[in-house]
C-alpha cells in the first residue's frame, strides 16, 4: 500500500498540478483530429495524474475518488465503447466500424470524424483505467506479505 507523503511543498504542487494534467489529457484526446495525440496518449496522461495523486496523497485518496470496482469496470467499458461503435455501424446497415452510417445529422465526412472521436474516447478510458489498475494491483498487499498473519 502506498502511504501519504508528508511534505507541504510536494502536496501543494500536486494539488495545483493535477487539474491541469487532467485537462491536458482530455485536450490530447479531444484534439487528436488536428494535432498529434489521441486516445492512447491522452489516456496515459489521465492515468499519470491519478498515479501522482496516489504517490503523494496515498492510495486511499485515489480509491475515494475512483472506487476500485468502478475503475476495473472502466477497463472493460472503454473496449465496449469501441466495439459498440463498430456494432452500431452494423445496426445502421454499414460494415463493422464504417462510421459514415452512424445516424448523426451532419455530412458524411463529419460523421466519420465523430466516429473517430467516439472510438478514441473508448481507447482513452481503457488506457487510463489500465494504468491505474496495474499500479493498484502492484501496490496491494495482503496480511501475510505484510507479516501480520500468524
Amino acid at each position: 500500500m502506498i502511504t501519504k507523503y508528508e511534505d507541504v511543498i510536494v502536496k501543494t504542487m500536486t494539488r495545483l498540478l493535477i487539474p491541469f494534467i487532467q485537462i491536458y489529457g482530455l485536450y490530447v484526446i479531444a484534439h487528436g483530429h488536428e494535432s498529434p495525440g489521441g486516445g492512447f496518449q491522452g489516456g496515459v496522461i489521465l492515468g499519470a495524474s491519478f498515479i501522482l495523486l496516489a504517490v503523494v496523497y496515498g492510495m486511499d485518496e485515489v480509491k475515494k475518488r475512483l472506487p476500485e470496482k468502478l475503475m476495473i469496470a472502466f477497463v472493460a467499458i472503454g473496449v465496449f465503447i469501441y466495439a459498440g461503435t463498430g456494432a452500431l455501424c452494423l445496426l445502421f446497415g454499414g460494415n463493422f466500424l464504417d462510421y459514415s452510417k452512424l445516424p448523426f445529422p451532419v455530412a458524411i465526412a463529419e460523421r466519420r470524424a465523430l466516429g473517430i472521436l467516439s472510438v478514441e474516447t473508448g481507447v482513452g478510458i481503457t488506457v487510463m483505467a489500465v494504468m491505474v489498475a496495474i499500479m493498484l494491483a502492484l501496490s496491494s498487499k495482503s496480511k501475510r506479505t505484510r507479516g501480520e498473519f500468524k
Binding site: G39, I72, V75, A76, G78, V79, Y82, G122, V123, T126, V127, A129, V130, A133, I134, L136, A137, L138, S140, K141, S142, K143, R144, T145, F149
Partner: peptide, 22 residues
C-alpha cells in the same frame, strides 16, 4: 485496445491481493 485490456485484466488477476487474503 483489446491487448491493453487483456494486459490490465491479467495484471489484476495475477498481482492483486486483498487485505484479508492469506
Amino acid at each position: 485496445t483489446t491487448v491493453i485490456f487483456t494486459a490490465g485484466i491479467a495484471c489484476i488477476f495475477l498481482l492483486r491481493r486483498d487485505e484479508d487474503d492469506y
